[in-house]
Structures are given as structure tokens and as C-alpha cells.
Design a protein around this nucleic acid. Structure first.
Length: 197
DNA sequence: TAACCGATTAGCT
DNA sequence: GCTAATCGGTTAA
């Protein structure tokens, strides 16, 4: 197990990881540019979950979810947007965390230019943050490590965490497998019944 | 090999 | 609030 996997506890069950990644940052080092953004919203997906790509076992696309924790699972959604996921849990369990929103920490100018929009619209959604950070299919199945230049950096969690149902799915809609930082401006969407938990 | 459709977004009403 | 954009993965045949 890599040092980073251990440090972030990515080998824990997916719900713990989804909640635990809040406050940590995604770092994208591309050439001279270093982008850093704090995770403020994440969702859990697992094999026994009808809403998950890993449901009903591995396929060509979802195979990485069944591998060891600490790898990126990047897939294209609606033919347009890249979704950024962190493979976690024990190998074979098909677990991953979807990063749904981040808060820019450094490199805001680059992110803003790439997005062609300003303010929270730069990173307040899974497709948006992938574009802002330059995450594409090239990063799919790569290891989360400082060597690859796209990795996670542990950070403190100072705000209350809100528990919620997931966004944009048709199955298992009742599971409270979404987590976000209370009151954060970059959270993609706040539902009326969401409560801190 | 064809048909269906989605872990979304932006722009318009 | 509504919907077009856009295409690879998945499934059924």
C-alpha cells in the first residue's frame, strides 16, 4: 500500500472515505502549473449499489474500481463531461468516491481561463472541476501519487459535514451517500431537507 | 452491429 | 424550469 493511500485511509470503506476526503485537496501539477483545490462535496458508490458503474461486477470501463485503492477512475458522462473518482476500499469491492465540487486554493487564474466562467461556476460541479483541473481520460486508471502529478493532499476538516442523498441518479436515490461542507459556496446543490449529520 | 442512454452543463424562457 | 449538446459504454440480438 502506498504512503498516500495509508495517509488518506483510502483502504477504508467507501462511506468513510467519501466523508473523510472533505477538506483534503486535489493537486494537479502539469508542467510549470500547479493547481490546488479543496474538496467540499463527494459521493460514495459501491458494487451492491444499483446507481454504481460497478453494480453487477466489473466491465471494461469499471474494472479499475475493483482494483486496489489509490487510483483514479475517470469516465465521460453525457458524451461531454469528465467525472473524477477516487478508487477506495478493499480490492474487489468495486468502491469509488465521486468528487462533486472543490474550492480553488491556488491557480485560480488558470482554472478560470479554462472554464470561461467566473466565481463558483469554476468548480461547483463534477464536470466543471474536471475541466478546471485539466482532468481527462489520460488520467483514467493512473495512480494517485506525487509522481504522476495528479494526487490528493490531506487537509484539515474544520466545518460541519452535511449528509444528503446523491445527485443525478435514478436508482438507490434514498441512500444518504453524499457529503458536503455546510455553508460552502462551491457545493453544487443544496437540497431543502439536507441536514448536518 | 444497432439502439439506448447517462454520477452534467449552459443557455434560454 | 426546460432542454439540446454529444458520444462511448453497455446490452440485446
Amino acid at each position: 500500500m502506498s504512503e498516500l493511500v495509508e495517509e488518506l485511509g483510502l483502504d477504508r470503506p467507501v462511506l468513510e472515505v467519501a466523508r473523510g476526503l472533505l477538506g483534503s485537496s486535489i493537486v494537479a501539477e502539469r508542467g510549470d502549473t500547479v493547481l490546488r483545490a479543496r474538496i467540499v462535496e463527494a459521493e460514495a458508490y459501491s458494487e451492491d449499489d444499483p446507481a454504481s458503474h460497478s453494480y453487477n461486477g466489473p466491465t471494461d470501463r469499471s474494472a479499475v474500481m475493483f482494483g486496489p485503492p489509490g487510483f483514479w477512475y475517470i469516465y465521460k458522462c453525457y458524451g461531454i463531461h469528465w467525472m473524477t473518482n477516487v478508487v477506495c476500499g478493499e480490492p474487489g469491492h468495486g468502491e469509488a468516491v465521486l468528487i462533486r465540487a472543490v474550492e480553488p486554493v491556488s491557480g485560480l487564474d488558470v482554472m478560470t481561463r479554462r472554464r470561461g466562467m467566473e466565481g463558483t461556476d469554476v468548480t461547483n460541479g463534477p464536470g466543471k472541476l474536471s475541466e478546471a483541473l485539466g482532468i481527462t481520460e489520460d488520467d483514467d486508471r493512473t495512480e494517485i501519487s506525487r509522481e504522476t502529478g495528479l494526487y490528493l493532499e490531506p487537509g484539515p476538516l474544520d466545518e460541519p459535514v452535511v449528509e444528503s442523498t446523491r445527485i443525478g441518479i435514478q436508482e438507490a436515490t434514498e441512500r444518504p451517500w453524499r457529503f458536503y461542507l455546510e455553508g460552502n459556496d462551491y457545493v453544487s446543490r443544496v437540497k431543502a431537507h439536507d441536514a448536518a449529520g
